[in-house]
């Protein structure tokens, strides 16, 4: 038994040393990547000082043309959205961006699945793992899953699943598209293969964790002009589904702009690539429409 326990201890010590070295190596690699998703994440977390920051999921990334916003509003802009993410990543990235400056305008693109419905919130922590030591990020992990604080002791876990791509990108110098100021337009016409014949949003429980993150996001926005926006959806959307977020916005006096049932976009193949994503043309059109509303309703300084 003694021999067994000693050997197990030695094995875990070896693993701990490997883990430490792996973490040091990956810290170096990650911080030297300038392209692709990691390069974009580095920019958002370490460099971005734009006046307008846009947060949200792939719908944010593909729908908000940063250049048009810059040209129209005369303010600098960066699109900080990320595929498959929502308010949890938005909050984390906003905290890191705020370490350097307070943006003038913050836009959060709202998606029911990522910002309201109950699901496995652990999946939204992916990009934040490597930033665990930054101020306020550990608290996000605690809010989502208290076990994570122990898992984050492992450096390998912090770079779980991302290390391979990062090493390849760093070692080969392959340049990936980081978008135009974070905005990544989708080229092409509507892909009808991707439209569901029967589309209905399933009944989900409301996730109080996500609602808490929305409140924290609003608090972190502080003096910035904050907007919650639902960008166009080809299928349209039952407006009642978004009520909890709309109510929070009303309570906090935050403008809530809903394009989900805008007749210009609903079932309009011209502007979409699939049921939930605008194509480049649709994104430009939507950004212009959004700017009109922003200009009409609110004073932008």
């Amino acid at each position: 038994m003694k021999k067994f326990l000693i050997k197990i201890t030695i094995l875990f010590m070896i693993i701990a040393i490997c883990d430490f070295l792996f973490g040091k190596g990956m810290d170096y690699v990650v911080n030297h990547i300038e392209t692709g998703g990691q390069g974009r994440d580095n920019y958002i977390c370490n460099t971005a000082e734009e006046d307008i920051l846009i947060f949200g999921s792939s719908r944010a990334v593909h729908h908000y043309n940063s250049q048009i916003l810059e040209d129209s509003l005369g303010l600098t802009c960066y699109n900080c959205g990320d595929d498959g993410n929502g308010i949890i990543l938005s909050y984390g990235r906003l905290l890191m961006a705020k370490e350097r400056h307070q943006p003038k305008i913050i836009i959060q693109d709202v998606v029911l699945g990522f910002d309201l419905h109950k699901d496995d919130n652990n999946k939204y922590l992916g990009w934040l793992k490597a930033r665990y030591d930054r101020e306020g990020i550990a608290e996000i992990f605690d809010m989502v899953n208290s076990e994570e604080r122990y898992k984050m002791l492992s450096q390998m876990y912090r770079y779980n699943s991302k290390y391979l791509q990062n090493i390849v990108v760093y070692a080969t110098g392959i340049s990936f598209n980081t978008g135009i100021k974070g905005f990544r337009p989708i080229a092409g016409e509507m892909d009808t293969m991707k439209i569901r014949k029967t589309y209905e949003v399933k009944k989900y429980d409301i996730d109080t964790v996500k609602l808490n993150f929305i409140k924290k996001f609003i608090a972190a926005a502080d003096d910035s002009q904050l907007y919650f926006v639902v960008s166009p959806i080809w299928y349209g959307m039952d407006p009642d589904l978004i009520t909890p977020i709309r109510e929070i916005c009303q309570q906090e006096n935050i403008p809530f702009i809903d394009f989900s049932n805008n007749p210009k976009y609903v079932y309009n193949n011209l502007y979409f690539k699939d049921g939930t994503h605008l194509n480049a043309r649709g994104a430009d059109e939507f950004t212009k429409d959004l700017i009109q509303i922003l200009n009409k309703k609110y004073t932008i300084e």
Binding site: I15, D19, D120, N122, K151, Y159
Partner: peptide
């Protein structure tokens, strides 16, 4: 194997 599990496993 242990390192691969920690660094490449899906834990969600």
């Amino acid at each position: 194997i242990l390192a691969t599990i920690i660094s490449s496993g899906v834990f969600s």
